[in-house]
Design a protein around this nucleic acid. Structure first.
Length: 115
DNA sequence: AATCTGACGGGCA
DNA sequence: GTGCCCGCCAGAT
């Protein structure tokens, strides 16, 4: 697929991001890059992050962290600690803004979710 | 129109 | 493990 550079494509991309985010099982987390990869945009991790900037209600944005398991987006929550709180409430342990056992709670849409 | 920034990722020293 | 650089694309100024 050649690069499609119109608004329609980005709108779909944002929608897809929200859909995938909603599918993240409770007690699991995923990364921006994983979602981008699942959507076919290899280097769209930043776009996923930007999509979360306007995440509608019902989208568990707190379950999306960066590839290192860091809660890089916590500063966008009010209060910022609410992200960690939400994760801990679901059984995910967070220490020093980092998800403990990230490899085990990691949920890869491309692998666990079938197209 | 040009430039900078950003809830990122991967590669390399 | 840590730090720096580059690529990536959409908004904001």
């Amino acid at each position: 697929m050649a690069r499609i550079k119109n608004r329609h494509f980005t709108d779909n991309f944002f929608q897809n991001v929200y859909e995938v985010a909603k599918l993240i099982p409770k007690g699991r987390v995923t990364s921006y890059g994983a979602i981008a990869n699942y959507l076919g945009v290899r280097s769209g991790a930043r776009m996923v992050g930007w999509a979360m900037h306007g995440c509608p209600r019902g989208v568990p944005a707190h379950r999306v962290v960066n590839s290192a398991g860091l809660l890089t987006g916590k500063h966008h929550f009010k209060p910022p600690v609410s992200m960690q709180k939400a994760l801990e409430r679901e059984g995910i342990k967070v220490k020093n803004d980092r998800v403990v056992d990230f490899d085990k709670v990691f949920w890869d849409p491309s692998r666990e979710l079938l197209p």
